[in-house]
């Protein structure tokens, strides 16, 4: 996982599979690297480098969304391939956050 900060936007990029074997390390990275609430307005989860996902990965995305929403910030997903986007839509997650290519 990698972090980039542009003005008021923080981007976390998933560089390995969004799968059970990596999720714990993603959580630790996020806990350590998520800026304070006054340092950003928009959180972007970049899935461009990733095409693999499982339900543990989906739960991770949902938990990040909840965390960011609790901070009153905007959450979105970019770079998810068509299959991952379809999966999120199947679970109606597109009701809660936007997905952009």
């Amino acid at each position: 996982m990698e972090k980039k900060l542009y003005d008021n936007q923080v981007i976390f990029s998933i560089t390995e599979g969004l799968t059970a074997n990596y999720v714990q390390s993603f959580q630790q990275f996020l806990e350590k690297e998520l800026p304070e609430a006054n340092e950003f307005e928009e959180f972007v989860l970049d899935l461009q480098q990733n095409s693999r996902i499982d339900s543990t990965g989906v739960t991770f995305v949902i938990n990040v969304y909840k965390k960011i929403k609790a901070m009153n910030k905007t959450f979105s997903v970019i770079g998810a391939n068509e299959d991952v986007q379809n999966l999120f839509c199947l679970m109606k997650l597109d009701k809660f956050f936007t997905m952009k290519n």
């Binding site: 339900s55 739960t59 199947l90 109606k92 809660f96």
Partner: peptide, 12 residues
């Protein structure tokens, strides 16, 4: 239900 923490795998 949609944002629950568990029981996501079997329905999928």
């Amino acid at each position: 239900i949609l944002l629950r923490d568990r029981n996501r795998g079997y329905p999928l």
